[in-house]
Amino acid sequence: MTDLVLDRLVAHRGRPLFEPVSAALPPGTLLGLVGPNGAGKSSLLSAIVGSGVTSSGTARYGEADLHRLRPRRLAEVLAYMTQDSYAPNELRVRDVVAVGARATPAAGPVDVRTAAALERLDVAHLADRSYARLSGGERQLVQVARVVAQHAPVMLLDEPTSALDLGHQLTVMHVLRRHATDGHIVVVTMHDLTQALRWADQVAVVAGGTVTFGTPADVITPELIHRVYGVTAEVFDSPGGSPTLSLVRPSDPTPATLTRPGPAAARP
């Protein structure tokens, strides 16, 4: 098992988007990247991959510098889903997912992994449908299935639940949590802090040019929520023992309470 090591990694878009990031993510980690729009979460993922953004510093998996790997070798190490992941419209759904499986031939039979990923993401019934005929949420599920079928040791996903209904959000996060538990390194950008509390082992808050790492309980605090989002929040345990956020916008005196299920539900 090998760590993903970030060493003074910075994304640039004419200027540095955040301070240099240095961190070691061991196998079995699900890292949630949270923060306001435009803070640099997606750019941090791109900087890890070494494409789509100018970057400095390094991202290493074992002895391999990810930025120097040829595409075929990189695909054996890292699976990546962007917010606008593309697939030719003429392809069938099963063909899109098989692209991921074919990238890692040593992981097992392509057809078996493709079928398993379709089933796990609840899109097996779409397998023979044209990708062009899918809704936005269906395309998102298919792209997650592609990443799952690839079975790379490092998995990066940019807002994989943003277009999904509640049921499919749970499906996606259960699957990603399972991959982390099985020894993969999973990095997910998300806006829902309750998702980060429930599913992540570690969180990184990207905001104001800084990147703050820690456990969800240590980092997602009322003070940080107010500083980053301008929202007053209370974090407490519900009677059932589930961490709960009660959020109040400065202009809205009525709290909106968000509760995540307890630990038993959080780990499949």
Rank of each mutant, 00 (worst) to 15 (best):
G214K: 13
G57T: 06
P239F: 14
G214V: 15
A107D: 03
G28P: 07
L17E: 01
L134D: 00
V154T: 00
T104Y: 14
A265G: 07
A64G: 01
P250C: 08
T54Y: 04
H12F: 15
V211F: 08
D65L: 08
V228C: 09
V53E: 00
Q140F: 03
P109F: 07
D3A: 10
R113D: 01
A24I: 11
V175T: 10
R249V: 10
A152C: 11
L30D: 00
L197N: 00
P27Y: 07
R139W: 02
T212F: 12
P71D: 12
P216D: 06
L78P: 10
D128A: 09
L30S: 02
L45C: 05
A200L: 04
G240N: 09
S55A: 15
G262M: 04
G57E: 05
L44Q: 06
G35M: 09
I220P: 02
G241N: 03
R113Q: 11
V49F: 07
S56Y: 14
T244Q: 05
V10S: 10
I48K: 00
T114F: 06
E19Y: 08
P255A: 12
V21M: 09
R72W: 12
D65E: 09
Q150N: 12
T171P: 02
L164M: 13
L66S: 05
G240V: 14
P261C: 13
D165F: 15
Q83P: 01
G62C: 11
G262D: 11
A87K: 02
T29V: 09
M81V: 15
T82G: 13
G35D: 07
L45N: 04
E63P: 13
A217I: 08
L258I: 08
S251W: 11
L17N: 02
H125A: 13
A79L: 04
A256P: 10
A265H: 14
L31Y: 05
V77S: 03
M190Q: 08
G183D: 00
S135D: 06
G208Q: 11
P261T: 13
E223P: 11
S246G: 11
T114I: 02
L176E: 01
G14W: 14
E90V: 10
T104D: 02
G241W: 15
R227T: 09
D128K: 10
I185Y: 05
T161M: 12
T189M: 06
G28H: 07
A87P: 06
T114N: 06
M1E: 12
P243C: 04
D95K: 06
V186W: 03
D218Y: 10
T161N: 00
S85Y: 05
Q202D: 09
A11K: 07
V49N: 01
